[in-house]
Simulated assay, not measured.
Amino acid sequence: MRLRIFTEPQQGASYDDILAVAQATETLGFDAFFRSDHYLAMGDTAPVLPGPTDAWTTLAGLARETRRIRLGTLVSSVTYRPPGILAIQVAQVDQMSGGRVELGLGTGWFEQEHLAYGIPFPARRFGMLEEQLEIVTGLWETPVGDRYSFSGEHYTLVDSPALPKPVQARIPVIVGGGGARRTPALAARFATEFNLPFPEFTDVPAKFAGVRAACAVIGRDPRELVYSAALIAVAGADEAAFARRAAAVGREPAELRAHGVAGTASEVVDRLGALADDGVECVYLQIMDLSDLDHLDFIAREVMPQLA
């Protein structure tokens, strides 16, 4: 099982804070560093300093200041960037990283941040997601020298040179969510990875089965996809250390154990093992306290060796 670090910088983090976590992620042997793509803190009406950082601007910086780890978003919103611009941004960061970028893309959901920064927030966005996935992958896959055009309900591209090209032959695309029909169908068509964000543990097998069924409908081998989950992670050497970290992120220990990857090292290993039994191949560990680099060190020392 691959372990990735997933952060929420909109809750209060500078680029330097993010860089420190990303470099620790790399040094400690985790597979990847991912960040959310949000512009407003959640759960608190007071402004949070230092303010938001843009996801793809951040990842461009990290592309030049890391060497091994994968880098990506979980997930970018279709409301933030036109698909042609997004394709250029992601391809450029892929070049800057030497081919280490992944794109998670979703409909977006947080209306307040759109209002705060003047970003349009249409009521119906699923069609935008479908068209953006088709356009972004279509632009990247268009042979050099050819042109790309698209005409849809939401977007029109005419005679695009479809440049620049990413380093990777195919940038991994992550599609996720809990929908029973439309999301699995999109994942089957466009994704290299299907992600369950903060699922109930008992729901995981059925959700993955739905994606496999959607693959079968279009004749795609479901084994081509990676099956992943994102879950909050809070761990400690003993109950006291765990409780301190839970309090630092404003969560109750019992609730974390019920819904996250949480507890002592043995409890975390058991939870990850159960997820693996349910078909989870990769876990995004949501780390909320970006100042606690010892937390990452603890997981790397006490948990990762037991997963080998």
Rank of each mutant, 00 (worst) to 15 (best):
G104P: 01
Q92Y: 13
G98M: 08
R125W: 10
G127M: 01
E113C: 06
L115E: 14
V93I: 05
Y117C: 05
E102F: 14
P122A: 01
T107Q: 09
Q132M: 06
V93W: 04
E130M: 06
G108T: 05
L105I: 06
Q112T: 14
V101W: 03
V93D: 00
G118W: 09
P122T: 06
L129G: 13
G104T: 00
D94F: 02
P122N: 05
F110A: 12
L115K: 14
H114N: 06
G106M: 00
L115D: 13
P122W: 04
E113V: 00
F126N: 03
L129E: 06
P122Y: 00
L105G: 07
Q95V: 08
G99Y: 01
G127Y: 05
Q132R: 02
G108P: 10
G108K: 00
L103G: 03
E102P: 14
R100F: 07
P120I: 15
L133S: 02
R100H: 07
L115S: 15
G106A: 08
R100L: 09
E102Q: 12
P120M: 15
D94K: 05
G127F: 02
M96E: 13
E131T: 04
H114Y: 03
L133W: 10
Q112M: 15
R124P: 05
T107S: 02
M96F: 13
L129K: 05
E102M: 11
G104S: 02
E131M: 07
F121L: 03
E102D: 13
L129Y: 05
L105R: 00
V101N: 04
M96A: 15
M128K: 11
F110H: 14
L129V: 06
Y117D: 09
E130S: 08
H114I: 01
G98L: 10
E113F: 01
G99H: 08
E111R: 12
